[in-house]
Design a protein around this nucleic acid. Structure first.
Length: 225
DNA sequence: AATCATTGCAACCGCTACGCT
DNA sequence: GAGCGTAGCGGTTGCAATGAT
């Protein structure tokens, strides 16, 4: 995996490289990634440096299994935001977008696909009888306006503001509390994956399959649901 | 014990968004 | 408004670890 074609080192990071990058960021702060390779003396591209810091070296990164409430929140946020991994990760303290993406792709996507297949089979008979009277509306990720506060990190957790607590006065205060209310019983049981309660996922995924907004509903309708 | 298949995760690549001139 | 450079994101790949045969 390693390579130095074009003079830039690739592949897995060594302990020495990690130390150099950590020292550099601690000295100069995050940002100005194009200067980091020069400042640190690393023979890496700026992208590689940034990614290594964000996904691995950053001090507040939480490693290990996702707890049940983290998975719960992830599923709901994914339903709401689609594959906006950075936004989802921003609401899971200590988790990186790469972590969230990997977890979704390895653990949840397969289950979602599986459930969709099962649901499709179960729905075949029903659809044959209801096709004439029901319009089929496919679940699609919401395309949200960039100006929407949720996409601008205004609901981010911080030391002064509680997790998910709204900073703006847009009327979506404490949006995430209601996001979790529906399955509160699952939150109280916060065993860790893997080896945890997988029935919880099944419930969540069934919930997902049935809870996409229908045509004509607004986003606020969906949130209130 | 050896081989093959699967899984999980770190890292890379290509693209878009954004800010500056 | 156009052009350029940088930052950031999501999709994809590569590979080590693990499990199955």
């Amino acid at each position: 995996m390693e390579g130095t074609s074009s003079g830039v080192r690739k592949g897995a990071w060594s302990q020495t490289e990690d130390d150099l990058l950590r020292d550099c960021v601690q000295l100069h702060g995050e940002g100005k990634w194009h200067l980091v390779p020069h400042r640190s003396g690393l023979n890496r591209c700026r992208k590689s440096c940034r990614l290594r810091w964000l996904n691995y070296l950053k001090p507040d990164i939480k490693r290990g299994n996702f707890s049940e409430d983290e998975v719960d929140l992830m599923i709901r946020l994914h339903k709401l935001l689609g594959n906006r991994w950075s936004l989802i990760a921003g609401r899971l303290p200590g988790r990186t977008s790469n972590d969230v993406k990997n977890f979704w792709n390895t653990n949840l996507r397969r289950k979602v696909l599986c459930h969709n297949k099962v649901n499709n089979k179960e729905n075949v008979k029903e659809s044959e009888t209801t096709r004439k009277t029901h319009q089929v509306i496919k679940p699609v990720p919401r395309a949200l306006p960039k100006a929407w506060p949720l996409l601008q990190g205004k609901f981010m957790s911080s030391s002064k503001v509680g997790v998910g607590e709204a900073v703006s006065s847009s009327g979506h205060e404490n949006w995430w509390e209601t996001l979790l209310d529906e399955k509160e019983e699952n939150i109280n049981n916060s065993t860790c994956f893997p080896g945890g309660n997988f029935e919880f996922w099944d419930e969540e995924l069934n919930f997902m399959a049935s809870d996409f907004p229908t045509e004509g509903e607004t986003l606020s309708d969906f949130l209130l649901n």
